[in-house]
Amino acid sequence: MVSMDPAIDGGRVRQARDEASSAPRLRVPLGNLGAARALLLPLIILALWQLAVNRGIYSWSQLPPPLDVIAAGRELQSIGLLVPNVLVSVQRVAIGWGVGAVVAIVLGLAVGFSRPVEGLLGPTLNALRAVPSLAWVPLFVLWLGIGDTPKLTLIALGAFFPVYTNLVSGVRQIDRKLIEVGRAYGLRGWGLTREILLPAAFPSLATGLRLGLAQAWLFLVAAELIGANRGLGFLLIDGQNSGRADIIMLSIVLLALLGKGTDWLLARGERRLLRWADTFQGTA
């Protein structure tokens, strides 16, 4: 029966032919770099940064050289301020994003699946989304005090909307016929949600989760800038108050690395769960 399968065998044949036809062509050197391609742009930026320092375009207190930023990290670590501040921020993002995402998944599925629920909740949620989220800050501080709760609430709110919006539209794009298959084979309620709705809407959900994570980091910094005595946002504000550009740069670099790192983790999970998808992967 294997030989009757042109889709599988044909794929291999086609691929081989493509390689043969492209062999005489000059290859773009970028293709041979592999994963190192991703480092090209950061290295250029780093070089330009060092160049700007060497030319003395900005003073040291405005733009310290890259190595001094690393030194600032060592200095903070030596007095026990680096890792704890990073961990506090990571924890806040994890909790805020997690809570926001779970609430968004529940509401997104309900609104996407049921038109009555959409009629009930949709307009209100859309109106809330229209409020720039930072506008909530004074109210959260007033209601929830100045501890961690208003910060986590703000981060959760930031993570909520991308997940919710993407999931609702993902559920509405599900092929109606697949839902009918589920019903015809006896799936109802939670079973239908778990076996049909969630996997079918998962590509949209994954996009929402990754956008939501980016939002969570954004709102983390906003929340920590406004009032915190720990975290990366606190380091930023502290660096500004004490005129330490190296600490500000360090915080920014750390935020970039953490944001990219957590997104990479999600992207890996997404790829694993979407092995079944037959979608365009970009050209080689």
């Binding site: 697949l178 298959v181 019903r183 996997p199 079944w276 998808a277 037959d278």
Partner: peptide
């Protein structure tokens, strides 16, 4: 409601793409 004694084969295969 959907009757468990029936099984339906549709015009298109309608396989769930995320299941083997």
């Amino acid at each position: 409601d959907c009757d468990p004694r029936c099984a339906m084969v549709f015009q298109e295969p309608r396989l769930l793409p995320w299941r083997t």
